[in-house]
Amino acid sequence: MEQPLGPDGDQQHSERWRDAMATFLDQVLCVCTSIRNNRNLQKLSLYGDTFMLQQEGLLDNSILHQIHQGDKKINEIQQLFMELLSNSRQLRWLSCSFMLGLVTPCSLACLSNPSAETLQHLSLLDHQHGPLIPPSELDRLSNIHSLALEFSDFTSELCGLLASPRRTPLHRLALLLNGAALEFKQLEGTPTEDDWKALIRASANLRVYIMALEVDSSELLRVLKPSLPLERLHLDSYGTMVSDAILELIAQQYNKTLTHFLLLRDGPDFPDLSVNRNEDPLVMLAWRCTQLAVLVVHGYTVWSHNLVAISRLRGSSLRVLTVSEESIDFDPDQSLYVEGDPVHNLVKEVSLGLGHVWHPCLDFSRVLSEPTQHFHRELHAFCTGM
């Protein structure tokens, strides 16, 4: 068992993270300085990998002010970023995710008029600040094809602006719903059912990708509107459990649009969502969602016979079926009517159902990647695959 850190250990720990943050600031300064005058820049994609800081409870802009000359460096970084936007002339892709201290609610106002005309993708994500995309600035970006932001910042007003007939239709919308941020970023003011309907009328080909981190079922019910054209849904948590009712809602509302569904939970137990139900909710989702191509499950009990049923229902159209070995359970009576090793039989039956060789996922770290990093990577694939 690890011993608690003493005073010396605490001091060393703090110094280590201060050094890490100082390095982070220096690297951001270096990058921004080198590209601030580049008028030919067409694509800028920045991701701040702050997962380790988040694990230590240090994911807060306030820690940057504890660094030597931290305030000065932060101001310089923000100024350089605004200069970069002001000097740009043909920017088409602007993505900045979780870059501590870089983007502020005023940054986008510095984007040059030529780049405002050419910009087709915009992604600004930061757990610390308020809305990073003011309505007045989004109104200026009339040729946006794809957009990514936090769900709490996607207001009814922004949705209304995107529904304007004067704009280029929106094709892709990626939304991150962070349960930990809901304490200070409320869902009041997010799009209503009528708002979504208006947006769909203006952007008939719109598809939406949502990642929900540690969000309970009551909050999910508030955001999963029937008219939302949901294509990809990633429900991820450490302790919060998704209810079977939510899975049923998803299967009913998005049966024609859902192609990717990830259900991940990194808790000590593996809840069984099929308890007290005649039909397993994951099987029903696979049956109803006829476009389902990717299904990933970890942290919930998946009975072997239900896994076989899913493979048979979707067949070869289910390109990816990833289920961690720990999540799979077997009917204790199965040995009475099925001979041989149950795992071998499962692999054989699922492989036959899918039409290709299948195996349970033995390394759950492949399934449980760091959520914000996964979102940044997936939104890139989602928005470039229009």
Score class of each variant (00 low, 15 high):
172 R>L: 10
221 L>C: 14
104 T>V: 03
324 S>P: 04
213 L>S: 04
214 E>R: 01
286 A>P: 00
159 C>E: 00
3 Q>K: 15
218 S>N: 11
124 L>M: 03
59 L>N: 02
316 S>I: 12
168 T>I: 06
276 N>K: 08
286 A>I: 03
197 K>F: 08
129 H>S: 01
87 N>S: 09
386 M>R: 08
198 A>T: 01
180 A>Q: 04
272 D>Q: 05
7 P>F: 13
170 L>N: 06
6 G>C: 12
24 F>G: 03
41 L>P: 00
245 A>V: 05
308 V>I: 14
34 S>G: 10
133 I>Y: 13
176 L>Y: 10
311 S>L: 10
40 N>Y: 03
288 R>W: 10
257 T>F: 12
305 H>P: 02
335 S>Q: 13
312 R>T: 09
125 L>K: 00
85 L>I: 06
283 V>K: 01
149 L>R: 00
330 F>K: 06
252 Q>M: 04
366 R>H: 13
270 F>W: 08
78 Q>V: 05
157 E>W: 07
294 V>E: 08
238 Y>A: 10
287 W>M: 03
16 R>H: 07
219 E>Q: 04
333 D>N: 09
194 D>N: 09
44 L>G: 02
110 C>I: 11
125 L>I: 07
32 C>S: 08
157 E>P: 00
143 N>C: 09
28 V>L: 12
71 D>C: 08
230 L>Y: 04
132 L>N: 00
129 H>Q: 01
237 S>P: 06
82 M>V: 06
378 E>A: 12
54 Q>M: 11
152 S>W: 14
73 K>L: 06
3 Q>H: 14
315 G>E: 13
381 A>L: 09
242 V>H: 03
28 V>I: 14
306 N>Q: 13
289 C>W: 15
386 M>G: 03
172 R>Y: 13
139 D>G: 01
332 P>R: 12
365 S>L: 12
318 L>K: 09
179 G>Y: 11
359 H>W: 13
138 L>H: 10
315 G>D: 11
224 L>E: 00
185 K>C: 00
17 W>I: 08
274 S>H: 07
318 L>D: 09
361 C>T: 06
70 G>Y: 03
310 I>G: 00
147 L>D: 13
199 L>H: 02
159 C>K: 07
70 G>E: 01
41 L>V: 11
142 S>T: 14
206 L>W: 06
273 L>M: 04
118 T>Q: 14
74 I>A: 02
36 R>C: 08
41 L>I: 13
94 L>S: 07
209 Y>E: 12
69 Q>M: 12
